[in-house]
Design a protein around this nucleic acid. Structure first.
Lengths: 250, 250
DNA sequence: ATGCGCTGTTACAAACTGTTACACGATTCA
DNA sequence: TGAATCGTGTAACAGTTTGTAACAGCGCAT
């Protein structure tokens, strides 16, 4: 599969004659035309032969797995700039569907491999991407394993708020293009619990609705405190949260 | 602790031109001495400066994160042959402790990077490792998100049974060197629920205890049916579910 | 061998989340 | 326009898992 290292010298080859030396992964995708997906349309399905790697240039995608009796788990939402399809398996082990209208570019796995072998600058970028993905997966495991419903929803709001604003700072507004069911399947909750929890946050003035798929973060500090990623000052945990619920009537 | 760590690094230090061309990741570690960890001893901690990458050559390690109020999430158990410490971050984002007596080898991140750049054969191996890790993380998300307590315990038993036998087939016996608390923190349950569930499986004759930290799988088919990875097309490719007939004639 | 400590097991009540059911508003289609 | 459908919100009830606590089993030291 990935063992096609024909050109062992390429690591040291200064410049390939035919192919331009790529310096970013984006460049690899930039030459192919964009494809469009409508809302709800699938990019690929769990079990399909995995032949391409995709880069999202616009819109939001959901990545999910389905187990036997229909239970669905969304393992991630992907935004512009993210890549999807990375795997050494012959088939995709998850499905990808458009949450919003999406535009993607695709390259074959072979071309992707070749580009990596030919460009030493690309490899650290891929490594970094995969490390970030792994770190995100572990955070998600923490969320699913030990966080309460409220902490999960707050963590999610913060995650999306960050992603919408370049991962650097938390925006004051959050767009949630996905359905409540999507959120529930991502957070390991039911749709009703998501709904209840959001209502509670609105009632307490932590966030304020801006239509059904957007919220303003009225009290970012409180949202942070409720997300469960205890910043050292918070050491009483669950009990502290309950206390606050009682203490803050408004 | 870990007093033998420093002498070995110089083995890779010399000029860039004459580095041996490695063909497997194992070889990269094989020249440095093994370090020993006692039961419960930490290899590194969340927040430590991340300077090394480790390969486990013996024993079992637990990888975990701690959030604010003391909640612990074990994100994985690592066995001989596994690598740990891969990250682009400056600090480790999780901790690693010995479940059993452990022997590890370490290389610096710099040497690791250099070896990868100099050996095209190594890169696909690392890519494969990271993909496997990612796939495992997603399976774990499914488990934590949507599986019942019983399904979690059964999945765990099957996972360990597979890993103990080279990932190829499921053994008839399972060694569980970790404590019930470790299992609970890995499965997103409480220690009591783990205990109850195991008792129930024993009562029903699915497994039979062999001391407290080992079980015989009396009804492998039943265990598979209970693990929740329904017979969806997901596993149709090459996975154990498919080979169930071959492995277990009954 | 006896006592102590840790780990694991079991029982029961409580809590959180899930389940079920229905209402509301927006959109689609006849 | 009006009915049907979809996504969502709300409420009462049910169920699984948890928390608490007491008890049992194993290992270890005295």
């Amino acid at each position: 599969m990935l063992s096609t290292a024909h050109t062992a010298h390429s690591a040291f080859a200064p410049m390939a004659t035919m192919k331009p030396q790529l310096t970013t992964l984006d460049e690899l995708f930039s030459t192919v035309p964009r494809e469009s997906l409508d809302i709800g349309e699938g990019l690929f399905w769990q079990g399909d032969r995995a032949q391409h790697i995709f880069e999202i240039s616009e819109g939001v995608l959901r990545i999910f797995k389905i187990i036997g009796d229909g239970r669905r788990v969304i393992t991630g939402f992907l935004y512009a700039g993210d890549m999807v399809g990375l795997s050494l398996k012959d088939v995709y082990i998850y499905s990808a569907e458009a949450v919003t209208p999406v535009k993607v570019r695709r390259v074959t796995k072979k071309n992707f491999r070749d580009a990596l072998e030919n460009s030493p600058e690309l490899r650290p970028q891929l490594f970094a991407l995969m490390c970030d993905e792994m770190a995100a997966a572990q955070d998600q495991m923490v969320l699913l394993s030990r966080k309460s419903a409220e902490e999960r929803v707050c963590s999610f709001l913060l995650l999306i708020a960050k992603r919408m604003h370049g991962d650097q700072q938390i925006g004051r507004s959050v767009q949630l293009p996905m359905s409540r069911q999507d959120m529930a399947d991502y957070l390991g909750l039911t749709i009703e619990t998501v709904s209840r929890t959001i209502t509670k946050l609105v009632t307490r003035g932590v966030i304020s609705p801006n239509g059904r798929h957007a919220f303003d973060i009225a009290k970012p500090g409180k949202l942070l405190a409720l997300c469960g990623d205890g910043d050292s000052y918070e050491d009483a945990g669950e009990r502290a949260v309950k206390t606050r619920q009682a203490v803050w009537p408004h």
